[in-house]
Every structure is written in structure tokens, then in C-alpha cells.
């Protein structure tokens, strides 16, 4: 992000903010959508993050660090929307079943399986996966963005990928199914 544009926003320039919002809106929305896995929630989180950027931009001391700071605000907005998910989601649980696995599922990785596995992760863990594997941020940059130690990021990523892997393996051998 152009530091000069950020400085203009810090001086209360609404036109500059409009330019900035256009420049970062798609990117923030893409990240929110991948963390929350829900179009409406992602739009709400992005809207909230953009408004917070406008309101709190004086807290950004170094305009060159705008990208990391904006992602942090976005993830914070996703946490808030994630709490809404927990309030409104149906109670899912896993039950054992004797249904045999269709052979073709042994080899096919279906995006629905990954979707379900990802949704089982907390927002904390999803954010680390998205920032690292979608935005390609280094683990150090993820830590910097989220304001947590690199060790915590490594721990969360390890836990998340272990969960995804286990779920993919389990879903490829459907000894369980989700019921509401």
C-alpha cells in the first residue's frame, strides 16, 4: 500500500480513504471469505474492518506496515463474526456408523470434505492457515500480523494442518458421518 495514501487517510482525507478501500477491499474480502466460509459473514467482517481502518488509522504508527495492520483488524472482525457462527450454527456431532465406504471415496479428495474439516477449526486456527497458505505470508509475518509469538503461530498451524489431514484421512474412509 502506498504510504502516502495512508498518510492522507490519517489526515482525514475521505477521498483518499475511498481510494484505499477500493484498493484493499477485494483482498480483505477474499481473506475474510476464506476464514469464515460464509458470504454474508465475510461481507460483514470486511465492512467492519474497513470502517475500523478509517476510525483507528491514527493507531498505525508506520504507514509502511499498513498491510499487516489491516489484516490484523480483519482477523479481529472475523473473530467477532465467528462468535456469531457459534451462536447460530446447528449443533453438529460425530456418530459412528456401519455404513461401508464406497470405494471411489478412497481416492477422491472432495472439496466438501475439506470444507467440513476446515469448519471444525477455531477461527484462531483458520486465520493462521489462510494467512500462511492463501496470502503466502511467512510464519514470522503471520505472527506479526496476529500479534502473537511465532511459536504460537507454528503451534496453531501444526494443529490446524494435523486436524485437516486427519479429517481428510477420516473422510476418505467414512467411518463416521455428521448428523445435526
Amino acid at each position: 500500500m502506498d504510504p502516502e495514501l495512508v498518510r492522507r487517510v490519517q489526515h482525514g482525507d475521505e477521498e483518499a480513504f475511498a481510494s484505499l478501500a477500493v484498493a484493499v477491499g477485494d483482498r480483505l474480502h477474499a481473506v475474510a471469505h476464506r476464514i469464515l466460509r460464509d458470504t454474508d459473514l465475510a461481507e460483514d467482517a470486511t465492512q467492519q474492518a474497513l470502517l475500523t481502518i478509517w476510525r483507528d488509522i491514527h493507531q498505525l504508527r508506520d504507514p509502511a506496515r499498513f498491510d499487516a495492520w489491516s489484516y490484523r483488524l480483519l482477523v479481529r472482525a472475523c473473530y467477532a463474526e465467528g462468535r456469531r457462527i457459534r451462536r447460530w450454527s446447528p449443533n453438529l456431532r460425530l456418530l459412528p456408523t456401519d455404513v461401508p465406504a464406497p470405494n471411489e471415496l478412497d481416492l477422491v479428495v472432495d472439496r466438501d470434505q475439506l470444507e467440513r474439516a476446515f469448519r471444525r477449526l477455531s477461527i484462531n486456527h483458520r486465520a493462521v492457515v489462510v494467512l500462511h497458505h492463501y496470502l503466502d505470508l511467512s510464519l514470522e509475518d503471520v505472527a506479526d500480523t496476529l500479534g502473537v509469538p511465532p511459536g504460537t503461530v507454528r503451534s496453531r498451524l501444526h494443529h490446524a494442518m494435523r486436524g485437516l489431514r486427519a479429517a481428510l484421512d477420516a473422510d476418505a474412509r467414512p467411518i463416521a458421518r455428521e448428523v445435526s
Binding site: 482525514g12 475521505e14 480513504f17 475511498a18 478501500a21 477500493v22 477491499g25 477485494d26 483482498r27 480483505l28 474480502h29 477474499a30 471469505h33 476464506r34 458470504t39 465475510a42 461481507e43 470486511t46 465492512q47 474497513l50 470502517l51 478509517w54 476510525r55 483507528d56 488509522i57 491514527h58 493507531q59 472439496r111 489462510v130 497458505h133 492463501y134
Partner: peptide, 26 residues
């Protein structure tokens, strides 16, 4: 991760920009 929505709908951007004049910067 590459699949899925990316573009922010104009109505969301418009909603943000509509609120800016009434939102004081801290």
C-alpha cells in the same frame, strides 16, 4: 484456498463509504 469469492460487492463498499462522514477518526 484458491477457489471461492474474492471481489468485494460494490454495495458493501458503498455502505462503508456512506458511513465514513458520520464516523469520527479516533
Amino acid at each position: 484456498m484458491e477457489e471461492g469469492a474474492t471481489a468485494l460487492p460494490d454495495r458493501v463498499l458503498d455502505a462503508v463509504l456512506d458511513q465514513v462522514p458520520a464516523t469520527s477518526q479516533r
